Computed example of a mutant assay.
Amino acid sequence: MSETHRKIRVLIVDDSASVRMTLSEIIGSDPDLEVMATAADPYVAVERIRQEVPDVMFLDIELPRMDGITFLRKIMSQRPIPTVICSSVAEAGSDTLMQALEAGAVDVVAKPRVDTTQFLQESRMRICDAAKAAAHAKLRGAQKAPPPPINVEAKLTADAIIPPHSEARAASVRAKQPDTDPIICIGASTGGTEALREVLEKLPADSPAIIIVQHMPEKFTNAFARRLNGLCAIEVKEAEDGDVVQAGRALIAPGNQHMLLQRAGTRYTVQIVDGPHVSRHRPSVDVMFRSASQVAGRNAMGVILTGMGDDGARGLLEMRQSGSHTVAQDEESCIVFGMPKEAIQRGAAAKVMPLNRVAHEIGVYARSTYRPGA
């Protein structure tokens, strides 16, 4: 970070003194971030905001004097601030989680866990990345500068989970792949919860099979899937190991675990595995995309949506090289144009389009690959 680079200023709103202290220590440890102020309730937060407007706000949902969702709605209607929900309440309540996202929150993280060094380190990475992504998110069409590059020190690739195919092996697999029903693979991060809702709500009940990686903490993915299941014509569920990938169903990778596509003949299932963070994430879009490139190839479509970083860019390129149809969301409709930008720059996307055309493109792809009796 250069001396002239201004740090991202963060306001923490949480009624727990220990959580405020832990978050402050985590955020303050990153050279790109600083804690502007902390507040125990929304009324104190308003006074802080009157003195100085933060770049990002971390907000709990259960707060004294005014709940976090009501406060978020008021802030977004008066002076929008990129907001990350940091709460344990949303883990169990799908309605609560979706209300927060629909009210304008750009991301959601679990409260930091300090029980072991590993969990604390994972919380630190997730919280700091969420703060940086939120700071560069577009709210109500406002343009933000591109996010700073992510520190990729010791960053693992999908090789840590799935060995890559050699060019000869990949060519052999492409040549031998029998036709199957189409599989749609979607990856998203910051801003992706609402983007996914927009896409999935438009799909008919007989839509092609879909597998999804959305960067989201453990337990939150189940709440997210349940809420989408109540809004969409297709079935939406958090993936479990061995789940069948089939038309009319979308499977969302569980938080804190990787999801791989598997195939036996013309039948697909998902495998849920543990493992290290890949491209700074678990689940990783790269892991899912690579598995699809190796077992589905031309029978798959890869879609990369809004999000910070480069998770999915390498995997989408592998999908395209294996014969898959590949799509990236365009800059104008992205909350954060990080992951799609990386994919586009690598030549991974055959098409670039606004979010409101993605569902239509899925339908076009499905019709173009329809094979009676396949």
Rank of each mutant, 00 (worst) to 15 (best):
S2A: 14
T4I: 14
R6M: 07
K7Y: 02
L11I: 11
L11P: 04
V13Y: 01
D14M: 03
S18Q: 12
V19Y: 03
S24K: 03
P31W: 01
D32E: 15
L33R: 01
A37H: 14
A45L: 09
E47L: 12
R48A: 03
R48T: 02
I49Q: 07
R50E: 04
Q51L: 15
P54E: 13
D55G: 12
M57C: 05
M57V: 13
F58E: 08
I61H: 14
M76H: 00
S77H: 15
T83R: 09
A92P: 00
S94Q: 12
E102Y: 01
A103I: 04
A103G: 09
G104P: 10
A105H: 10
V108S: 09
K111Q: 05
P112K: 00
R113N: 04
V114F: 14
D115T: 13
T116P: 06
E122K: 12
M125I: 15
A137H: 12
L139G: 10
G141E: 00
P147Q: 06
I150T: 01
T157V: 05
D159E: 14
I162N: 08
A170Q: 09
R174H: 06
T190K: 09
T190S: 03
T193G: 02
V199L: 01
L200R: 14
L200I: 06
E201G: 07
K202R: 15
P204F: 08
P204L: 11
S207H: 08
I211L: 11
I212Y: 05
T221S: 09
N222I: 11
R227I: 05
L228V: 04
N229K: 07
I252K: 03
H258Y: 01
H258S: 12
H258G: 01
L261F: 14
Q262L: 13
G265Y: 00
R267L: 00
T269S: 00
V270M: 05
G275K: 03
H277Q: 15
V287R: 11
M288L: 15
M288K: 11
S293H: 02
N299A: 10
A300Q: 00
L305P: 08
T306K: 04
D311N: 13
R314V: 07
R314Q: 15
S324L: 07
H325N: 01
E332I: 00
C334E: 10
I335V: 10
E342C: 10
E342S: 02
R346K: 15
G347R: 05
L355M: 12
R367M: 08
R367S: 02
Y370K: 06
G373N: 06
